[in-house]
Each structure stands twice: as C-alpha cells, then as structure tokens.
C-alpha cells in the first residue's frame, strides 16, 4: 500500500524532556486523519517535526514518494503563530502559498494569479481580497489560510486546530473543501481537540499522548477504551514509571 506519510521511530525531546516518544505512523493517501489527544500530548510538535521545523531526536519521516518538501506539504497554522498586524492583504497572503512553486528571484505568473483567484472564490473570500488580514473575523482568517494551503497544490495538508473559533458557516465550507480534497486523493492531517466531532469530520484518527495509543479507521480505533487510555492524565508518566499500558 502506498502511504502519503510514513513516520518511523520518531522521538522528539526539548532538552531532557521527551515530548514525543517512539512514534510509528502510516497515513495512506486519500484519508482525512484527525490527531487527537489531551493538552501537552505533542500534537503540534508532531506536526512541526513533519514540517521540518523541529529537529527530531531520533527516527525518520518520509513524505509521499520523497518529493521535494515545498511541493509535497501544505499547512494551515494555528492562529496564534501568525503576525496579524503584518501589512498585507488577503490576496497577498494566498499568493504566498504559490511562492514554493514560483522559486527564488521570480515573480508570480498569470497562472499563479488564476489559481489564487479560484481558491479565494471557492472559499467565498474573493470580495474581501484587498482587505488587511488583521481586519478579518476569525472564520474569515481561517478561510484565507485554507485558500493559501489550496494553492500550494500539495499532496499532504496539515491543519493545526482549524476549527478553533470559527463560525458555523465557515465550518461547513471547510468540511466541504476537505471532502473535495479527499476526493482528489489528497491526504489531510488535522490536529483536533474536540472529541465530540471526531466521528463527524474524520475517517481515520490517531490517538496521541506522547506516544501513539491507537491509529486507524475511526470506527475501529475511536473506542471508549482507547480514549480512556489516551486521556488518563498521567498516561505517559505511567509508561515511564514502568506500568505496561
């Protein structure tokens, strides 16, 4: 089976403290996978490690067919990680998604502009294309970043808590976009913290708390027993304390 993302023996530590321990994960093409776990479980760290922002202690990460990262991965950041006062417009932010394709020194071509326009229209943000991004509502900001991820035309999409603080309408639009991406054979990996909506949004799920507690199709893996194990407040402590979990 061809996998979009393969993680082997990944450990990440900030100084002496292991944040992710011995992660093995295979994500097939054409899935929407949720990464779920309590606060401090290392969900965002896992994403950063795959994106190459955090240097892993041990292990390997392989993305679809080992293509160049710039074209293989797109990501939607957590809201806090972006400078919202930055002097730039909605259109400009979405165009940033094309920069990986445009290359050093060059300027955007006509096809780049067309793609940006199409993505903004898909997310009904075209009328706001000249707005300063700080002036948008939370839902609109999230749509802009989704549009930016779309124009990256990647194989794998990473989204960090995309549903946080968005309105119901944006949520519907986003779910639609996710489904159409999936239909195109793309892979979406979504960090998520609301257990109630897992069944509704995702077809597969990874339960993470420093280690992977379970990973697979939602109906197989997302059981009360597994959730309990993952969310036991000291689950990873228990592991180190030599209780076989």
């Amino acid at each position: 089976m061809e996998y979009a993302l393969v993680i082997e023996d990944l450990s990440v530590a900030y100084h002496k403290k292991p944040v992710l321990w011995d992660i093995d994960l295979n994500v097939p093409f054409g899935t929407i996978m949720g990464i779920v776990g309590p606060n401090g479980a290392g969900k965002s760290t896992l994403m950063k490690a795959v994106l190459g922002v955090v240097k892993p202690l041990t292990g390997r990460i392989r993305l679809a067919g080992d293509t160049h990262q710039a074209h293989a991965v797109a990501y939607v950041p957590q809201k806090e990680s972006v400078d919202w006062d930055f002097p730039t417009t909605v259109y400009d932010v979405v165009m940033m998604g094309r920069y990986g394709h445009i290359g050093w020194f060059k300027r955007p071509r006509k096809s780049d502009h067309e793609k940006v326009e199409a993505a903004l229209k898909t997310l009904s943000m075209w009328s706001l294309k000249d707005t300063q991004i700080g002036a948008l509502s939370g839902g609109q900001q999230q749509r802009v970043f989704l549009a930016r991820a779309l124009v990256q035309e990647a194989d794998v999409y990473f989204l960090d808590e995309p549903f946080q603080g968005v309105d119901a309408k944006t949520e519907r639009v986003m779910v639609e976009v996710f489904k159409s991406l999936k239909a195109q054979g793309k892979t979406l990996i979504i960090v998520h913290h609301d257990l109630n909506t897992v069944r509704q949004y995702f077809d597969s799920v990874t339960l993470l708390n420093v280690r992977v507690f379970a990973s697979g199709a939602v109906e197989d893996v997302f059981t009360d027993e597994n959730i309990m194990k993952t969310y036991q407040s000291d689950a990873h402590q228990a592991f180190w304390r030599d209780e076989r979990v």
Binding site: D9, S11, A13, H15, K16, P18, D22, L57, T58
Partner: peptide, 12 residues
C-alpha cells in the same frame, strides 16, 4: 541532551 539522544538511539 546528547546522552539522552544516545540512550534513545541505542536502546529504543
């Protein structure tokens, strides 16, 4: 940090 890395690499 290096000791931890060594431990994990050798004994994982």
């Amino acid at each position: 940090w290096h000791r931890l890395k060594r431990t994990l690499t050798l004994y994982a």
